[in-house]
């Protein structure tokens, strides 16, 4: 079967924007997995020996900490993407002016 050539419609700037977006998403999801599945589940047994303000650390992560981290991740994503959007627009406007 012949491999069809991928259709390219995005310009250089847009592709850079998408790459940065994917990189941001991946790093936030690494934190998501480490805190939720790592601290809250996979390492829950060793961490339940560590005490944290009257409860065990794994209990606190599983029932409080992870949720707080989830809020932060979504917030950071919204803020960073706003910034990325604006960088892109500024760059595009500058290009328009020079043309």
């Amino acid at each position: 079967m012949e491999k069809p050539e991928a259709y390219k419609t995005l310009d250089e700037k847009q592709r850079r924007y998408w790459k940065k977006n994917v990189k941001l998403i991946s790093s936030l999801l690494v934190v998501w997995a480490l805190v939720g599945f790592g601290g809250g589940i996979l390492f829950a047994e060793p961490l339940s020996q560590v005490s944290f303000f009257g409860v065990s650390l794994s209990f606190w992560i599983a029932q409080q900490g992870a949720i707080l981290v989830f809020i932060l991740l979504i917030l950071i994503y919204a803020i960073r993407m706003d910034k990325l959007d604006q960088e892109y627009i500024k760059e595009a406007n500058r290009e328009k002016e020079t043309k």
Binding site: Y7, K8, T9, L10, Y17, W18, D85, I89
Partner: peptide, 11 residues
């Protein structure tokens, strides 16, 4: 092309 467009920033 449609998918590429979804990936582009929205201005």
């Amino acid at each position: 092309q449609l998918i590429e467009n979804v990936r582009a920033p929205e201005v």
